[in-house]
Simulated assay, not measured.
Amino acid sequence: MITTESLTKRYPRVTALDRLTLDIEPGVVGLVGSNGAGKSTLIKILLGLLAASEGRASVLGLDVVRDGSKIRERVGYMPEHECLPPDVSATEFVLHMARMSGLPTAAARERTADTLRHVGLYEERYRPIGGYSTGMKQRVKLAQALVHDPQLVLLDEPTNGLDPVGRDEMLDLIRRVHTDFGISVLVTSHLLGELERTCDHVVVIDGGTLLRSQSTAEFTQATQTMAVEVTDSERHPDGAAAVCAALVGSGVAVTADGRLLLVDVSDESTYDTVRDAVAGLGLGLVRMEQRRHGIVELFRPQTPDAQPVPFRGQHEKEGSRGSASTP
Rank of each mutant, 00 (worst) to 15 (best):
G135S: 03
P128Y: 03
M136C: 11
V147Q: 06
A145F: 01
E123I: 01
L146P: 07
Y132C: 04
T134A: 13
Y122R: 10
L152K: 07
L152F: 06
S133D: 11
K137D: 01
K141F: 02
T134L: 14
Y132L: 05
T134I: 11
Q151K: 13
G135M: 03
E123V: 08
S133H: 12
L142I: 15
P150H: 06
A145C: 09
Q144S: 10
A143K: 14
L155P: 11
L146A: 08
R125H: 00
L146Q: 11
Q151W: 00
P128S: 04
G131S: 04
G131L: 01
V140S: 08
Q144I: 01
K141M: 14
H148T: 06
P150L: 03
Q138V: 08
L152S: 08
G131R: 05
G130N: 09
Y126Q: 07
S133M: 12
L121F: 07
Q144Y: 06
Y126A: 07
G130Y: 04
G120P: 12
L155A: 13
H148G: 09
V140Y: 11
P128C: 03
G130E: 06
A143D: 14
R125I: 00
E124T: 05
G135R: 04
E124V: 02
L121R: 11
G130Q: 06
R139P: 06
Q138K: 15
G120S: 13
L142H: 14
L155R: 11
T134E: 04
P150N: 13
H148L: 08
G120Q: 13
L152T: 01
G131Q: 05
K141G: 15
K141T: 00
L154C: 01
K141C: 12
A143E: 09
R127A: 10
P128D: 03
L142Y: 10
